[in-house]
C-alpha cells in the first residue's frame, strides 16, 4: 500500500495485534486463579506473577513496531479477559487502559525508533507504575504497613522486568527466526538497502 501514511495502522496490524491480545487475554484469564491463590497470608507473593499482565503491550510493540499497537494490545487483552469473566471483572478494563497508556508512552518517548530489550523492560516497568496509580484509590495501597508495601512494590517491579521485559523479548527474538515478523513489520531503510546491492 503505497499511499498509506507511515505509522498509520492498517487492518493487518490491527488484526495481528488483536489476535495476539486474544492469546494473552486467555493467558490472563488462566493465570487469574493462580494469582488469586497466591493472595492468602497477605505476603504479596501474587505480585511475583503480576508482570504477566503487562506482557501484551511490550510484546506486540516489539513484534509490529508501530505507534499505538502497545496501547491497543493491552486494552484488547483486558477486554478479552472481561468477556471471559476474568476474576477482576470490569476493573480489568480500567487497568488495561492505564497500563496500555504507560506502556505505549515508553515507546513513544523513544520516538518509535528503538525496540530493544531495554525499551521492553522500561515499558513493563511503566505499565506497573500505571497499575499503582489505580491501586492507590482502589486497593488502599498506602494503607499497608511499610514493609508489606515495599514487598508489594519490589515484587511487582521484579516480575514486570522478567515477565514483561525479558519474556516478550525472548519470544519476539524466537519469532524473528521463524520469519513471521517479516509479514507484519513496516519496511525499514535496511530493507531498501538490501535491494540496492
Amino acid at each position: 500500500m503505497a499511499e498509506q501514511k507511515i505509522g498509520k495502522l492498517n487492518l493487518t496490524d490491527i488484526l495481528v495485534t488483536i489476535v495476539a491480545s486474544l492469546v494473552f487475554g486467555l493467558i490472563f484469564r488462566l493465570m487469574g486463579p493462580v494469582y488469586d491463590l497466591l493472595k492468602p497470608f497477605g505476603l504479596q507473593l501474587e505480585m511475583l506473577t503480576y508482570g504477566i499482565w503487562f506482557i501484551a503491550g511490550p510484546f506486540v510493540a516489539l513484534l509490529i513496531r508501530k505507534p499505538g499497537v502497545a496501547f491497543l494490545a493491552e486494552t484488547a487483552a483486558a477486554a478479552v479477559e472481561l468477556l471471559f469473566a476474568g476474576s477482576g471483572g470490569i476493573i480489568n478494563v480500567y487497568y488495561g487502559l492505564i497500563q496500555g497508556v504507560f506502556s505505549e508512552a515508553v515507546f513513544a518517548a523513544f520516538l518509535y525508533k528503538r525496540f530493544t530489550l531495554l525499551t521492553a523492560i522500561l515499558s513493563g516497568v511503566a505499565a506497573s507504575i500505571g497499575s499503582f496509580i489505580l491501586d492507590i484509590p482502589y486497593g488502599y495501597l498506602t494503607g499497608l504497613v511499610g514493609w508489606n508495601l515495599t514487598l508489594n512494590i519490589v515484587f511487582r517491579f521484579i516480575s514486570a522486568i522478567i515477565l514483561a521485559g525479558f519474556l516478550p523479548y525472548i519470544l519476539v527474538k524466537a519469532l524473528e527466526k521463524t520469519g513471521v515478523t517479516q509479514l507484519v513489520r513496516p519496511v525499514t531503510k535496511e530493507d531498501y538497502d538490501v535491494l540496492k546491492k
Binding site: 488483536i18 489476535v19 495476539a20 492469546v23 519470544l171 519469532l175 521463524t178 513471521v180 509479514l183
Partner: peptide, 23 residues
C-alpha cells in the same frame, strides 16, 4: 517455548492472511 511459539506463529500468519482478505 514450543507451545507459545507454535500458537503465536500460526495465529500471526492466519491473522495476516485474514486481514488481507478482509481488506
Amino acid at each position: 517455548l514450543h507451545y507459545a511459539l507454535g500458537i503465536l506463529v500460526q495465529s500471526i500468519r492466519r491473522a495476516q492472511r485474514t486481514a488481507v482478505a478482509m481488506e
